[in-house]
Amino acid sequence: MSQLLKNYDLERLAISTVASHTALQILRGAKKYGFRTIAVARGEAVAQFYRQFPFIDEVWVGDFANFRKTAEKLAANNAVFIPHGSYVEYVGWRQALEAPVPTLGCRELLRWEADQFKKMSLLEKAGIPIPRIYKTAEEVEGPVIVKLFGAKGGRGYFVARDRRELAERLKRVTEDYIIQEYLFGVPAYYHYFSSPVYSRLEIFGADIRYESNVDGRTFGWAEPTFVVVGNLPMVLRESLLPTIYTYGVQFLKAVEEAVGCKLAGPFCLESIIKDDMSIVVFEFSGRIVAGTNIYMGYGSPYSVLYFDKPMDMGERIAHEIKEAVKRGKIEHLFT
Rank of each mutant, 00 (worst) to 15 (best):
Q3N: 14
Y8H: 11
D9H: 08
D9S: 10
L10W: 02
T17W: 04
S20G: 03
Q25V: 05
K32P: 02
A39V: 04
V40A: 09
V40T: 07
R42Q: 15
E44V: 08
A45C: 10
V46C: 04
V46G: 06
Q48Y: 14
Q48S: 15
Y50G: 06
R51D: 03
P54E: 11
W60Q: 00
W60A: 08
G62V: 05
G62K: 05
F64C: 00
F64K: 02
F67K: 01
R68H: 13
T70K: 01
E72D: 04
E72V: 01
L74H: 01
A75W: 00
A75D: 00
A75E: 05
A76R: 05
A79L: 01
F81P: 00
F81M: 01
H84P: 05
R94K: 12
Q95R: 02
A96N: 03
E98D: 15
P100Q: 01
R107W: 07
R107Q: 07
R107L: 04
D115F: 01
K118R: 14
E124A: 11
E124Q: 13
A126V: 10
I130S: 02
P131K: 04
R132V: 09
K135Y: 09
A137D: 02
E138V: 10
E138T: 13
E139L: 07
G153F: 06
G153Y: 06
G154V: 00
V159S: 10
R161K: 13
R161T: 12
E165F: 07
R169L: 12
R169D: 10
R169A: 12
F184T: 13
V186Q: 14
A188D: 04
A188P: 03
H191G: 15
Y192H: 07
R200Q: 12
L201F: 00
E202I: 10
F204S: 12
G205D: 06
D207N: 09
Y210S: 04
E211I: 09
S212Q: 13
N213L: 07
V214L: 13
G220Q: 11
A222P: 07
T225L: 10
F226V: 06
V228K: 00
G230R: 01
L236H: 11
L240K: 02
L240E: 09
I244E: 09
Y245L: 11
Y245H: 15
Y247T: 08
V249T: 14
K253N: 12
K253R: 15
V255Q: 09
E256D: 12
G260N: 09
K262C: 11
A264C: 08
P266G: 03
C268D: 14
L269A: 08
E270M: 10
D275G: 14
M277A: 15
S278G: 06
I279L: 12
V280E: 05
V281K: 04
V281D: 00
R287Q: 05
A290E: 05
T292M: 03
I294T: 09
Y298H: 10
G299C: 07
P301N: 12
Y302A: 03
V304H: 03
G314E: 02
H319R: 13
H319P: 14
H319Q: 15
V325L: 04
R327A: 08
R327F: 10
I330L: 06
